[in-house]
Amino acid sequence: MMFIGAHMGSPIASVPSRTVKIGGNTFQIFSHSPRMWRITTKEKDAEKFKMEMARWKLDPQKVLIHASYLINLASPRDEVWKKSKSLMKEEMRIAHLLGLKYVNVHPGSKLSESEEYGVQRCADAVREIADESPTDVTLLLEIVAPKGGNIGYNFKQLEEIKKLSRRNIQFTYDTCHGFDGGYDITSEDGIKKLINEIEGTIGMENLVMCHLNDSKYPLGAGKDRHERIGKGYIGREGFLKFFSYEEFHQMPMILETPGSDIEHAEDIAIVKEIWSQLGL
């Protein structure tokens, strides 16, 4: 079985039923407003969510929480760095409360510091978060677009963060972010290069989630502007090539494309059409 879904808005208790309605069998959520430092999720919300997950027979180990946009684990500003670590621990606690396995976060921006500084800063934060979080929740670092001082825009940097943290973290691939950073999934050579780099760094077994987004800008643009499936520079043919490689068949595919449930249902249908072309 292949898993497909979308980033879904609140209330979280409605997400399992809405996911099934749009043709999905997995999803991503925010645990709270991504623009706030304070988490408001309560135990009664979590119990209702878990009941709905069971009712609609969705696998909690295929579902993702996306951490707050405020979090910057590479920040050279001590106050921001401390608040980021604290909020990330709360995100991990909420995942445990909801019965979910994964929390996804961007590694962060080093601002004007060196990349070496940013990688080490993020690794130190990851170690503390892992040590002070529930053991049944896994932290995922997401590959990001090379803009704004971001670190983690290639797999070598992600592997270095893991190595320096000395913790068992895993990873998320974003097709738009990767395309922004020069990973060309519209060509056979580009996909083979991507797979070889993954295998030579983090290991394919540690790439456990995928954000499935088309790109509003060309290869290597570094803009981080998501587009609906088939309407951007990756295009249907690019995703047809991407899905032709079995290395990407096991991880859940989460849409972060523009639009509401209606548009996500249309995009999911397009992805299923692409899969059917490949006999999946």
Rank of each mutant, 00 (worst) to 15 (best):
I4S: 04
M8C: 01
G9Q: 09
P11H: 10
F27V: 01
F27D: 00
I29M: 05
W37Y: 06
K42L: 11
E43K: 09
Q61I: 05
L70Y: 09
N72D: 09
N72Y: 05
S75M: 02
D78G: 08
K83L: 08
L87W: 04
K89Y: 03
R93A: 09
R93T: 03
I94D: 02
A95V: 01
L100I: 07
L100M: 11
L100S: 00
Y102W: 02
V105M: 07
G108H: 04
K110Q: 14
L111T: 14
E113R: 15
E115K: 11
Y117V: 02
Q120L: 15
T138D: 01
T138F: 00
A145I: 02
N154E: 13
Q157F: 00
K163W: 02
L164R: 14
R166D: 01
T172R: 03
Y173H: 06
D174Q: 05
C176V: 14
I185S: 03
I195D: 15
N196W: 11
I202L: 06
E205K: 13
H211G: 04
K216G: 06
K223Q: 01
D224N: 10
I229N: 02
G232Q: 06
G238N: 03
F243V: 05
S244L: 10
E246S: 15
E246C: 08
E246N: 12
F248L: 09
Q250I: 03
L255N: 02
G259V: 07
D267A: 12
D267P: 10
K272I: 13
E273S: 09
W275E: 13
Q277H: 15
Q277G: 14
G279Y: 00
